[in-house]
Amino acid sequence: MARDGAPFPQQSTLEAVVKACGENPKPWVDAWHRASDARLRPERNGGSKAVQLQIDELTKVVGQLVEQVAMLTAKQNAEDDEVQNQKARGERAYHRLLVNLPEARFTATTWVLREPKSATAPVAYWVPEQPAYESSSVDTLLQMVAVLAAKQKSLPKLRTYLSSPPELEAAEKLRIGIDDHPSNWPAVPRTEVDRYLTEMSECLRRYFEELAERPSHEAP
């Protein structure tokens, strides 16, 4: 611009552009001062020798600026590559998470008939053979897990959800009358549901640890 007689940029404009690029403006401002001192001005046009000196100085300054531009370009390209690599690592980690998710296959709880033991409880009733959760509350939990696991961006919400899961209804609270059939009140063993939640949390832990790891040169 100085060589061709175009308007010389103001120092404040240069600083704003360099800061927007994320670089330290000081070396650029120093180069700006050198270029400003060397650019052609009417009062400095004292002959062909003086002009040549100014041209040589400007050529030197332009070369330094080209080096700065090349450095900025290389840095920007490296940052772009890192973004792409991070995205690829995230997709691979998400794929492994989906492959390793535990299956939610639960057995039905067996109900046993509890005979009356005293006059205060004269009626027989059905109770679960082991500690269990009501199937309806387990189904609600599984639906929420499926919705949050279906999108990679929802995994942080899923981790939070599993760290403090909703209250599951205990089937032991039910006392099914002798005239009712236990099949109308399905339940799931508590140990199976708790094990599933533990395995889900472990899968998520490994996923987020993998995202936090430094890039490796191993094949995906």
Rank of each mutant, 00 (worst) to 15 (best):
R3W: 07
A6D: 12
L14K: 04
C21Y: 09
E23L: 15
W28M: 07
D30L: 07
W32L: 05
W32D: 08
W32V: 04
H33C: 03
D37Y: 08
A38F: 08
R41N: 04
P42N: 10
S48C: 03
A50S: 11
Q52P: 00
D56W: 03
T59M: 02
Q64P: 00
V66M: 13
V69R: 15
M71I: 06
L72T: 08
K75I: 00
Q86C: 06
R92Y: 00
L98C: 08
L101C: 08
P102I: 06
E103S: 12
F106W: 02
F106Y: 07
A108Q: 11
V112N: 01
L113D: 06
E115C: 03
S118V: 04
A121R: 13
V123G: 04
P128D: 10
Q130A: 15
S135V: 11
S137T: 14
V138W: 07
Q143R: 15
V145I: 15
A146K: 14
L148N: 05
A150I: 01
L155E: 04
R159F: 11
T160S: 14
T160D: 14
Y161V: 03
Y161R: 05
Y161A: 05
S163C: 06
P165F: 13
P166L: 10
E169N: 08
I176K: 03
D179K: 14
P182V: 02
P182E: 02
S183H: 10
V188L: 02
V188H: 02
V193D: 04
Y196Q: 05
T198E: 14
T198Q: 13
E199W: 02
M200G: 00
R206W: 09
F208W: 06
E209T: 08
E209G: 01
P220E: 12
